[in-house]
Design a protein around this nucleic acid. Structure first.
Lengths: 217, 217
DNA sequence: GATAAGTTTTAGGTTTACCTAAAAATATTT
DNA sequence: AAATATTTTTAGGTAAACCTAAAACTTATC
């Protein structure tokens, strides 16, 4: 897919480069490029003032870097809302399309799109849509796998990964849906939850690690 | 802007490469790249089977080339409709945005966009939107500059060029608008036309060469 | 603390777009 | 037809992404 500077910045952002150092290794697996390419790009991003770099330690976004990444993420998420709400895409299909659209979106276009969509707060996966270049505080969430039995929670966001999204559609689970954790299987067995309509759903441990929930009273 | 193969094909199409040979020179000015670059790209397009090339004579699109170009033009024009009708752009602003969007539009996306827009027939500049890969016959039009005094005509399409489009907005002229030609100034003087609301408009000869009209009875 | 394992960097090369400048081919003018 | 002008091609180079393989550095293990 040939990521460019913008993609690197976004990846660093997604790996929490806003508040901690991110290793080259993480970027390598995130973008599926060679370690050499990452190393080379980090040098360029330092020159551009987007990141600070401690060799062998990792990179962290500067203010400029955070702003750049936020703008891109904003565009990405606005397109996702558009694709789902206006064009009838399912939320598991939108990521790849948005990935391409984001890079050719002028600021004028993103502002008008935002207005057209009625200034949405969140993308279809439940992530906040940054306003301007300001990074929005995300709600405190936990992986579903970290909950205790009996805890009531609400599905808040989902890692943006096609297979996982398809799996959720199969399970008929949606963002914003509340449920109570019934039991956690041993030996990697599935987690059992009960939805508000009393339906019982079995979720693999692996998926549970990528589903983020808000604890409810 | 760094045109790629798709842009070259589209440019050849727009220079009527469907039914006649197009010179390198024309492509040079159309895409604002060096003659060397055009020459190099033509070699590649021949290898890909998109064009036939007679050295020093010019290029012509093959069936494959026509199909590729039509798909791209379809995407371009659908985006233009979207930008004007849904996002409130004026028709003089949409070309550049659509130019970028068209390249990142999957066939799924273009089909869904088409449906969302209600299967429009024409883009905001009055050009037909190709359906699938089939090239649609364009209505027979003439440059406004070729009309005779007294002829009634209808503005059908406009060369997609920002300055010209802005000029038309200034003159309050719109696609589909009917008028009668009153007089043609000598010494490159303006052409005078009378709109249906009786308003009289003066159009420069230069603009008149880039405005295409349908003759009315 | 020495060895092994893992990570990052450097070195050297590829691709695909671009370019300028000069050579070759064609077209036009005298 | 010869000279001039225009257009196209070729030759040689740049830029920004990529890569593999080997060297350098850091961390973990024995």
């Amino acid at each position: 897919m040939t990521p460019n500077k913008e993609d690197y910045l976004k990846m660093i952002f997604e790996l929490n480069g806003t508040y901690k150092k991110v290793s080259n290794k993480e970027i390598v697996s995130g973008l599926k490029v060679s370690a050499a390419s990452v190393s080379e790009m980090m040098t360029k991003l330092v020159k551009g003032g987007y990141i600070t770099y401690t060799p062998y330690q990792g990179v962290q976004l500067t203010e400029t870097g955070i702003a750049e990444a936020s703008i891109l993420i904003r565009k990405h998420r606005l397109w996702e809302v558009f694709l789902v709400e206006k064009l009838g895409y399912s939320w598991s299909e939108v990521h790849e399309e948005a990935e391409l659209l984001e890079h050719v979106t002028s600021s004028t276009l993103s502002e008008r799109l935002d207005a057209f969509l009625g200034f949405p707060e969140k993308c279809p996966h439940g992530d906040m849509i940054p306003k301007g270049t300001v990074v929005v505080d995300e709600t405190v969430t936990y992986p579903l796998s970290a909950l205790e039995v009996g805890q009531k929670a609400c599905l808040y966001k989902v890692m943006d990964e096609k297979e996982l999204l398809d799996y959720l559609i199969e399970l008929d689970m949606h963002i914003g849906e509340s449920f109570t954790l019934l039991s956690i299987g041993s030996y990697e067995g599935p987690i059992k939850i009960q939805k508000e309509n009393c339906e019982i759903v079995h979720i693999s441990q692996k998926a549970a690690q990528h589903l983020f929930v808000e604890r409810l009273a």
